[in-house]
């Protein structure tokens, strides 16, 4: 094929403009212009896609880089408010768990930018139940707690499902006690004795079944606390290390 003649061949010039768009050499205004063409004409959008595919090989030569773990937590925090909006059984005026969790995760994530915290949130249970639950049934979360350190930083968030049997605990800050593990305790309303709920993960969500004996106590006004324990958890049934964070369970 002959060399490109800039003075002629309008369709070709237009196609090269699309190529420049994909290549990334256009300025902001020019980019908006091309996007306008794409919106107006699917054939142009298709030609842009053709150029994107042509350049795919170059894109594949870019070295991958692992994104920090808190990115995923922030993405979830941003998509979850939509679920609140879709949750028809939740009165709009009541702040929902999802919004609260969103805030907490943002607080947590913001403070750990330098830390290698892994927040892999495995909340499959609740959204799935919401999606598939019959209209009018409340099978989602009913109770939640923010477990904070003495200086007010959210260390973990916990949520308990409507049946009171399943609790999800999510770390929201870096665990700084290397060689030690976090253990979760329940202190029933009016009680002073912590009941062990077990060791939880410091770097991703833990979904646990609340022991049958404690289900009645895991209610509003109960306290959740985290102590620092040796791997495997407290050998005594009571906290052996410092209690570094606590928070009250509240209905939502």
């Amino acid at each position: 094929m002959s060399e490109f003649d800039e003075s002629a061949d309008t369709p070709n010039r237009e196609d090269l403009r699309l190529a420049e768009y994909v290549l990334g050499t256009l300025d902001g205004e020019e980019r908006r212009e091309v996007e306008g063409w794409m919106d107006a004409d699917p054939r142009i959008a298709a030609r842009v896609e053709t150029w994107q595919e042509r350049f795919a090989q170059l894109a594949n030569q870019v070295a991958p880089a692992d994104a920090p773990a808190y990115i995923w937590a922030r993405i979830l925090a941003r998509i979850e408010p939509e679920r609140v909006a879709l949750e028809s059984t939740a009165p709009a005026t009541r702040p929902g768990l999802w919004q609260s969790l969103t805030l907490w995760r943002w607080l947590g994530a913001g403070s750990l930018a330098v830390a290698a915290l892994v927040v892999i949130i495995v909340l499959g249970v609740m959204p799935t139940q919401r999606q598939h639950g019959a209209p009018g049934t409340r099978s989602g979360t009913e109770l939640a707690a923010t477990i904070r350190t003495d200086n007010g930083q959210a260390a973990f968030t916990a949520s308990i499902d409507a049946s009171g049997t399943r609790m999800t605990v999510i770390p929201t800050a870096a665990w700084k006690h290397s060689g030690k593990v976090p253990e979760l305790w329940l202190i029933a309303p009016g009680s002073k004795t912590p009941e062990p709920l077990g060791v939880i993960a410091q770097d991703h969500a833990t979904v646990m079944t609340i022991p049958a004996a404690l289900r009645g106590q895991a209610r509003s006004q109960a306290l959740l606390a985290i102590s620092v324990e040796p791997p495997g958890g407290s050998p005594t049934g009571l906290p052996t290390g410092p209690v570094i964070a606590k928070g009250a369970v509240n209905s939502i």
């Binding site: 990334g24 053709t50 595919e53 795919a56 894109a59």
Partner: peptide, 15 residues
């Protein structure tokens, strides 16, 4: 799925 694959679609959004 047409001219561009799923990966190309994702890459284009990122780019």
């Amino acid at each position: 799925e047409g001219r561009a694959t799923a990966m190309t679609w994702l890459i284009s959004i990122a780019r």
